[in-house]
Design a binder for these strands. Structure first.
Lengths: 126, 126
DNA sequence: AGGTCATTCAACCAACCGGTTGACTTTCTA
DNA sequence: TAGAAAGTCAACCGGTTGGTTGAATGACCT
């Protein structure tokens, strides 16, 4: 375990629930950005962008360094890892679903080669 | 690609941002549950639980089947996989961070055995 | 020193969120 | 068939959210 005091999931998922913030994170994946640089692609005021950044900062997703009059933000991947790990618990459900799909396709394939009927039964779907 | 029309991330992350809903999902990991069963562990009204369930349902996390007067809910892992995949994009950041930590520890270790200086130079960091 | 640049702060607004209560519909059961 | 049980719905409430504007705070530039 690397995270010493794992950040709470609520604020992390809440920060990620807004598309503006997700796009800002994507931008930060390319490197350090100032508040103004992060705000520039959006048609919102600087104050609104500042609020978005504060939401991510208090969720631990962003770290800020003030150099002169500019505030430089950089990505902190820790909370993203925390969220990723939380989701991994449910991984067995979607892999299981894929296994079922795989099994169904395989069975259909076997039936197709065993009984060469031109229009196989569609099942109860529709 | 398995998801035909990937569910939007906003509603998914929003659904996950509430701890009551996350606990309900955990409960659903053990199998099908009715609305009443999902509400029971919490000190909230049935109507409030019903709203939570509707939030998850419209995010695609839950599927409902009405049998008689009971509504049975079961987990749909698709949106969880979508969120997991989205987060995986940032995986390189936390693994990179671990690599750096690893490298630092390794270097410190090498220096300790090569030049047994008690206080090695800290570099230009600070 | 004065002006401009980068950013936050405070106040305000409409919309949404999580919760309640009470009325209602549908289904099961005695 | 009357009542209880399982849920939803609509209305309401206080708090939060995402946005705005205008003023304030520092830091850089000339």
């Amino acid at each position: 375990m690397v995270e010493l005091h794992a950040p709470p999931l609520g604020p992390i998922f809440h920060a990620l629930s807004d598309s503006t913030r997700r796009r800002m994170l994507l931008e930060l994946a390319s490197g350090e950005r100032t508040v103004g640089q992060l705000a520039q692609p959006f048609s919102i005021s600087l104050a609104a962008a500042s609020k978005h950044i504060k939401v991510m900062e208090s969720a631990g997703l962003i770290q800020r360094e003030v150099r002169g009059r500019a505030h430089f933000c950089r990505l902190d991947p820790g909370p993203l890892e925390t969220a990723h790990e939380w989701l991994s618990f449910y991984e067995r459900f979607w892999t299981a679903r894929l296994d079922v799909l795989d099994r169904l396709l395989r069975e259909e394939d076997e039936q197709k080669s065993a009984t060469p009927k031109p229009t196989p039964n569609q099942g109860d779907e529709t």
